[in-house]
Nucleic acid binder design. Sequence first.
DNA 1: AATCTTAATGCGAATACTTATCATTCCAAT
DNA 2: ATTGGAATGATAAGTATTCGCATTAAGATT
Lengths: 133, 133
Amino acid sequence: MKQNLKDAGLKVTLPRLAVLKILADSEQRHMSVEEVYQALLAAGERVGLATVYRVLTQLGDAGIVEQHDFNDGHAVFELAGEEHHDHMIDLDTGQIIEFSNEIIESLQHEVAAAHGMELVDHELVLYVRKPRH
Amino acid sequence: MKQNLKDAGLKVTLPRLAVLKILADSEQRHMSVEEVYQALLAAGERVGLATVYRVLTQLGDAGIVEQHDFNDGHAVFELAGEEHHDHMIDLDTGQIIEFSNEIIESLQHEVAAAHGMELVDHELVLYVRKPRH
DNA sequence: AATCTTAATGCGAATACTTATCATTCCAAT
DNA sequence: ATTGGAATGATAAGTATTCGCATTAAGATT
């Protein structure tokens, strides 16, 4: 955890370690800034909200966490895992389901290439619902 | 244009017609709320900003326009066209490129189905860049 | 270990975008 | 033309995020 920060050229500070620990220990894989902030307070850490924003953004730039802006008004963050995945959101419950599909991934590269571009990043969100009955 | 509104059960009012006309006549397919608002003022229409927000949201709910929340802080709207498409954003220029891929579309349905869900909507954005050299 | 240099932090103010409030106006059915 | 209710305009309020700056703390240097 310390090493992650050093590798990214970031100083090892208490707020940064604390945020990483919250993300690592949390039940929920995806946490909003407010949720991380509240969890920090609950854990007895005295960090400012602005710092939580800054730290999460930095960790995002460093590739240590991933940021997603689903269409519900606030960003959510998750520890950058081993393997890439996309998200499916249940419109009724708000539940976030992760999935990955190799073919979609490679088709995205193809589409970009077909337009003379190279794929840097992408965001795919499926809004779904349990079929009735 | 009037008929679109009536079909959606919306009263035919001046602001609604004006917004639709702006979207139809604009050079750019994708417009932010502010851009629509400014275009309305430039066209001599006296509509309030709040109304532009309301009207665009309603037109979105009615399926007459599509709303996209790209990761740049503000929503953009476009007239709902004939055929569906997704978007590719040039990270260097900000240019929005449209594309469509049948296979990706059907795979999305498959993925949802594989999780016992039905696909209601989706948002796919590719962040791309022109290869160097 | 004490000092120093600079980046990092905490706090509140500020910003950006969007929604709510509510009196007034306009649509469209009579 | 009248009228009931939905739509609008102006502005206040709300929500998420960033900024400004004095203070603090990391970690390099002595």
